[in-house]
């Protein structure tokens, strides 16, 4: 009893001092706030791209080293009025899937919408949000990796600083809010100079390390936007990997909103 009273006595002034000192010290960020701030800054640096398009080559590798390729084109439209980006992905190969197209509407406040167009059937199918953790076109990328994401879709936690290949990075952990995400957490290495994601580790629903993503060959477009020319996703559990090489990237290509609706999906070329 006595002890408690004494402790209180000691605590009281300490709390008072701390409260007084806080505005003077500046807001001491929690690791959660710092993690969010880093991702918000990274997002801000990508703002204003309006639209983009690029060619992509996807190389699938199995654990014996056999490879197969898919060619596709990606078009993106920056979201307006607080809603997320729109992405259209069109397949040129494998040839039996030519014309297959995926349209994604990212949303900041609810599940993303995804529609897949199957040209052989002339049919547009909505992808259930539960399916987003599934593999995209047989690759190591899942629908959720491909569709793009908004800052608001995760909780964050800053872990530490670390140097990756000579570049000082923030290491931030993020936790998907979406219950259908295939991940429990993602650890991301973001370089401190340009806020580019250099590396990410994905942990599956059983919390074991599933995949590692490495981004290399960064190029600066329009003096403002950094994009990697090469992304490699390695699945540590199966030994398979997928490389995504982008080419002919153009920002501000003058794409129209009419190229990002369900009709456009059917005529995507």
């Amino acid at each position: 009893m006595l002890k408690t009273v004494q402790l209180r006595k000691i605590w009281k002034p300490m709390v008072a001092v701390a409260l007084l000192a806080m505005p003077l010290m500046g807001h001491a960020e929690t690791p959660e706030e710092r993690g969010l701030a880093i991702f918000e800054e990274a997002d801000k640096r990508g703002d204003g791209y309006v639209d983009s398009k690029s060619g992509m080559l996807m190389i699938l590798k199995d654990k014996r080293g056999n490879t197969s390729e898919r060619k596709m084109r990606v078009k993106g439209l920056e979201g307006k009025d607080g809603d997320g980006d729109k992405t259209l992905m069109i397949f040129d190969t494998p040839k039996d899937q030519k014309g297959t197209a995926l349209l994604t509407f990212s949303h900041t406040n609810k599940d993303d919408d995804q529609w897949l167009y199957l040209p052989a059937l002339k049919r547009v199918k909505k992808i259930a949000s539960k399916k987003k953790s599934g593999p995209f076109m047989g690759s190591e990328f899942s629908f959720e990796d491909i569709g793009g994401s908004e800052v608001e879709e995760y909780d964050y936690k800053y872990l530490r600083d670390e140097t990756v290949e000579g570049q000082k990075c923030f290491v931030v952990e993020s936790y998907p809010k979406d219950k259908y995400s295939g991940y429990t957490r993602i650890v991301t290495w973001i370089d401190q100079e340009h806020y580019r994601t250099l590396k990410a580790e994905f942990y599956d629903r059983k919390k074991s390390h599933l995949k590692t993503l490495a981004a290399t060959g960064f190029t600066l477009y329009n003096d403002k936007f950094w994009r990697p020319d090469l992304l490699e996703m390695v699945n540590l559990q199966t030994g398979k990997s997928t490389v995504l090489k982008s080419s002919d990237t153009v920002f501000g290509a003058g794409l129209k909103a009419s190229a990002f609706n369900k009709n456009a999906l059917k005529r995507a070329r």
Partner: peptide, 20 residues
């Protein structure tokens, strides 16, 4: 022949349409 406008599009000719 297909033509796309801002909020509309047209098709003229032979094609196949799926409903369902």
């Amino acid at each position: 022949w297909g033509h796309v406008g801002e909020n509309w599009e047209t098709k003229l000719g032979y094609t196949r349409i799926f409903w369902g």
